[in-house]
Amino acid sequence: MVEAATMDRAAVTARPGHNRPPVIEAINLKKHFPVKKGILRRTVGQVYAVDDITFSVGEGETLGLVGESGCGKSTVARTVLRLIEPTAGTIRLDGHDVTRLGKAELRPYRRQMQMIFQDPFSSLNPRMSAGDIVGEPLQVHGLASGKEKHEQVCEIFDQVGLRRSQMNAFPHEFSGGQRQRISIARALALNPKLIVADEPVSALDVSIQAQVINLMMDLQREKGLSYLFIAHDLAVVEHISHRIAVMYLGKIVEYADKRTLFTNPQHPYTEALLSAVPVPNPKLKRAKRLLQGDVPSPINPPSGCAFHTRCPYAEARCKVDTPKLVEISPGHGVSCLLRTN
């Protein structure tokens, strides 16, 4: 759930239709990367990769996070998992604040949140067999070893649709889709509550994408997993997500449940994204609102509304006033001066 910074937690969980307890909450999360120059490595600026975003993912729920490349989606994923340190904000896992935990204190929490990576070729160690890759998390956390580990790995292989006989094969012997299954199996090994999937299918063929997405949805039903699903392909996100948040230049500009977002988009950026989704029927004529230009640099984000440089409806005040994320109907938030007043 995406919230205006001012909203309190009670309001977040009390929303109708979304009464699932949150597994992960990110509150006012910021990640700024310093830009350093010269011999002395002076900081000459900041990249506002993630700039004050708030959301939560409920139990058994999938939150889709969409946006153009470079808008900070992957940084959100890595910050939530504490793979990179947040500049500011709070991350709560199952109600526990994990933002400032040290490495050793964080370890038990790592079991509850796992990640699936975009590139199925470099996210697996080429020198380890598939069985070792999947069994490694069990070993690291001292959950199982020897025969017990082997049996658990066998079970996970069955769950993700890999053959047990493939356990001794090395990653390079698998196809892209199978490799992504290994990646999913590795994430499942620790029986996590949350899986952060960073564009898990964008490197795969379309036919394989569907298989992997369906596998993820089946696993969610069986195990009650929560997903933070990052993608730039809206069709994929529509298929798997319950709710969707749209990011632009490090900020969330609109969020809603899937149906609302696709039928009644409010933010001009969401509108443009949706109109760019290909439709299978070529005779269907649609009004296309294609955006001009590129995403502005997150080092010097535009003043006022960051989207005003590309917005077809922009007015003078958009360059000056910064819009706030406001809930226009329950569960539907928009950050646009024109649509919220």
Partner: peptide
């Protein structure tokens, strides 16, 4: 990314260096 994956699993830095980096 496989080093990042090892971090996400909760592996210690020393173990990542020996198990994942050194063999490669």
């Amino acid at each position: 990314p496989f080093v990042e994956a090892a971090k996400a699993i909760g592996m210690s830095e020393r173990r990542i260096a020996i198990r994942h980096v050194l063999p490669n």
